[in-house]
């Protein structure tokens, strides 16, 4: 980070949270917007009493992005005091095609938050969902994915509820600092209000851009709809059809491997992918 530090670390008595936000894309029309999961991550941050939240975005700084990012600044409703809404959003400016990882790592080292919240994956760009893992690796922090609620934070340990399929929840405790990703099981984000979004502070901080060389070599094409495997239900009555539709999917052919070496695990996965025709056999 350059000397002009735009995000100040949280005061000692308050929990420092950094929420990483990205520019989203509406699935039907492709219009830019605040990304749904990132907005949920910010919503989660707002639900933690006594926190001091910073909003960070690494990417291009143009008018269209700004409009979308301001969507996060408009999230003020619900509480009258609004004490832990972020004062501003910091855009760490990056060139097109840059790998935002180093810039984010630098910013987070500078900011020293105790908790980093973000969505599971971005709605634009690669959207591989790798970023939080790479950040965790670079920073050497633990990562928890798919969190639906932060129950409490005390003495450097956060108690989290992780969302599992079919509405199940798992309570975890994690040593801070940590990276926590949020998916659609977390509570929906509050609406973004036009006035605060327009007035909200947006600070741009210049940072070196590292071109993403690997990605520059890739060829990208629009996604095609993949055929979905139909679940064939031969039920005679409406009741049977309903039961079949509501039933848990039976992982009939699946295997649970525990306590095996990574190599054996990888082989098992490879074998499955070949069987399914995903990899050439």
């Amino acid at each position: 980070m350059p000397p002009d530090v735009l995000v100040e670390s949280a005061p000692a008595d308050r929990l420092g949270i950094a929420v990483l936000v990205s520019v989203g894309r509406h699935p039907l029309t492709g219009r830019t917007r605040r990304a749904d999961q990132d907005a949920r991550a910010y919503e989660l941050a707002l639900s933690i009493a006594g926190a001091c939240t910073a909003l960070l975005h690494a990417g291009q700084n143009d008018a269209e992005n700004e409009l979308a990012l301001r969507g996060y600044l408009g999230m003020v409703g619900a509480s009258e005091s609004g004490e832990n809404t972020a004062e501003r959003l910091v855009v760490i400016e990056q060139a097109i095609g840059a790998d935002v990882l180093p810039a984010l790592v630098n910013a987070l080292r500078e900011l020293t938050p105790e908790l980093v919240l973000c969505g599971m994956r971005a709605e634009t760009g690669e959207g591989s969902g790798m970023l939080p893992y790479l950040l965790a690796e670079w920073l050497g922090w633990p990562i928890v994915s798919g969190v639906a609620q932060v129950e409490s934070v005390s003495d450097g340990v956060a108690t989290l509820l992780q969302a599992l399929p079919r509405g199940q929840r798992r309570r975890l405790s994690v040593r801070l600092p940590a990276i926590v990703t949020v998916d659609s099981a977390a509570p929906g984000a509050r609406p973004s209000a036009f006035g605060p979004a327009r007035r909200g502070g947006l600070a741009v901080s210049a940072a070196a851009s590292m071109p993403d060389e690997a990605r520059a070599e890739w060829l990208t094409t629009p996604a095609r709809k993949r055929p979905r495997r139909l679940k064939i239900i031969t039920a005679l009555s409406a009741r049977d059809r309903f039961k079949a539709a509501a039933a848990k999917t039976q992982g009939g052919g699946g295997k649970v491997l525990t306590g095996v070496s990574p190599e054996i695990g990888a082989e098992a996965i490879q074998a499955l992918l070949k069987e399914e025709g995903v990899l050439p056999s």
Binding site: H26, L28, T29, R31, R33, G74, M75, V76, G77, A78, R190, P191, S192, A193, F194, G195, P196
Partner: peptide, 30 residues
């Protein structure tokens, strides 16, 4: 309520978000 406080009731918010993203209140493909 809507522009400053951002506390429009839930269904109202959905409609507004759909209007912004898809130009129709129910979020159908334009």
């Amino acid at each position: 309520i809507t522009l400053e406080l951002g506390v429009t009731p839930r269904r109202g918010v959905e409609v507004i978000e759909n209007l912004i993203a898809t130009d129709n209140p129910n979020g159908f493909a334009p």
